[in-house]
Amino acid sequence: MSSFNDLAESVITGNFGKVKEITQEMIDKGIGPLEIINDGLIAGMNVVGVRFKAEDMFVPEVMMSAKAMAGGMELVKPLIADTDMPSVGTVVLGTVKGDLHDIGKSLVAMILESGGFKVVNLGTDIAPEGFVKAIREHKPQIVGMSALLTTTMLNMKATIELLKEEGLRDQVKVIVGGAPVSQSFADEIGADGYGSDAMVAKDLCFKLVGKAS
């Protein structure tokens, strides 16, 4: 019988097949889906996060681990009623209008998901109106914007302005990131936080929803 440790280890090594196998085995044995998620899948991803931060694991490995974890989640999710699905909070993420850079933002999505957040990844080239629509639809605690271009980073400001006009600014925390973005720029446009990389973004999100990471 495989242990939670084995499951976590298979997530850490990014072994998609093994994660699915152990997860299925546990489901068949009658182990609760939340236990499988928390003590196996997320436990493994947490180790990945720490190692990534310590530069002991790298982007391709994190992606493999996230994919392996998703393979396990797919099996257990149908067994959980939506309301019981553990979630630290909801984050809407997108790259701002005029900007097609996807990689960093998707990495942040992956790390947040593995930390237990529900992530709504809007994709790239998202107009301020697109963020507004997603906030109304998904009621997130946090909105994250990415920009890799100095011209498009001004659309973060435009989005924040629109959130104010629409009366939504007080309902969400806004965080920003991307190569040209800095803490001082975040302060200047009135964002609630800036993450210099995916792990910092995760810690920031935990802080903003008032929970320990």
Partner: peptide, 8 residues
């Protein structure tokens, strides 16, 4: 100097 968006 693209990061100097306000007085580039």
């Amino acid at each position: 100097c693209g990061t100097m968006v306000f007085d580039e």
